[in-house]
């Protein structure tokens, strides 16, 4: 009994399995398989692209590093040059300043010397005048009397004579 296929069940089985096969082989499994495969290829491609991008990025990174390195070296160089130039300028300025200062000091010294000499000669002149004045006054005081004046004249004459002889 169990080994004899029932005609009704056969009929329904053919019908329903046929429908299932028709629908699923047309709209079911091929769609799923196709999509999974296309997604797989998409993922694979994306991974490949990502890998390439990484390599590219590494390259760019390396190039960038070289550029930065060069720039740094350049910077150091420029800085050094700048320092040198600055030192040079400062030294120059210093030298010039010293020179100028010396010049000014010398000038001042000479000026002072001149002033001093002027002042000294002035003082000398004044001292001479003063001494002449004083001598005059002293002489005037001494020569108020006649004999005195005579004495003086005599002495002076003596002196002149002595010096002539």
């Amino acid at each position: 009994m169990l080994l004899l296929p029932e005609s009704g069940l056969l009929f329904w089985m053919l019908l329903s399995f046929g429908a299932v096969v028709f629908i699923l082989t047309k709209y079911g499994f091929p769609v799923i398989i196709k999509m999974v495969v296309s997604r797989k290829t998409y993922i694979d491609e994306s991974l490949l692209i990502a890998k390439q991008a990484y390599i590219e990025m590494d390259k760019v990174k390396a190039a960038g590093e070289v550029i930065v390195d060069n720039a740094r070296r350049e910077q150091v160089k420029i800085l050094n040059e700048a320092t040198q130039t600055r030192d040079l300028l400062i030294n120059d300025a210093k030298d010039k300043a010293i020179l100028e200062g010396k010049k000014m000091i010398d000038e001042a010294r000479r000026q002072i010397q001149l002033e001093k000499e002027d002042a000294i000669s002035d003082i000398r002149r004044q001292v001479a005048e003063l001494s002449v004045d004083i001598a005059e006054k002293v002489l005037r005081g001494k020569l108020e009397k006649k004999d005195e004046q005579m004495n003086m004249i005599n002495r002076l004459l003596d002196e002149i004579n002595i010096s002539k002889s």
Binding site: S7, G8, W12, A19, I23, Y27, I32
Partner: peptide, 30 residues
């Protein structure tokens, strides 16, 4: 000639519909 919806036929139809729905839902999502 007997094509009654018996217990087995009903179960068969039910599972067929269930299978179609499940697979089509998956296919639609894809």
């Amino acid at each position: 000639f007997d094509i009654s919806i018996t217990k087995n036929v009903f179960s068969l139809l039910f599972s067929s519909i269930l299978l179609i729905v499940v697979i089509l839902v998956v296919a639609r999502s894809f």
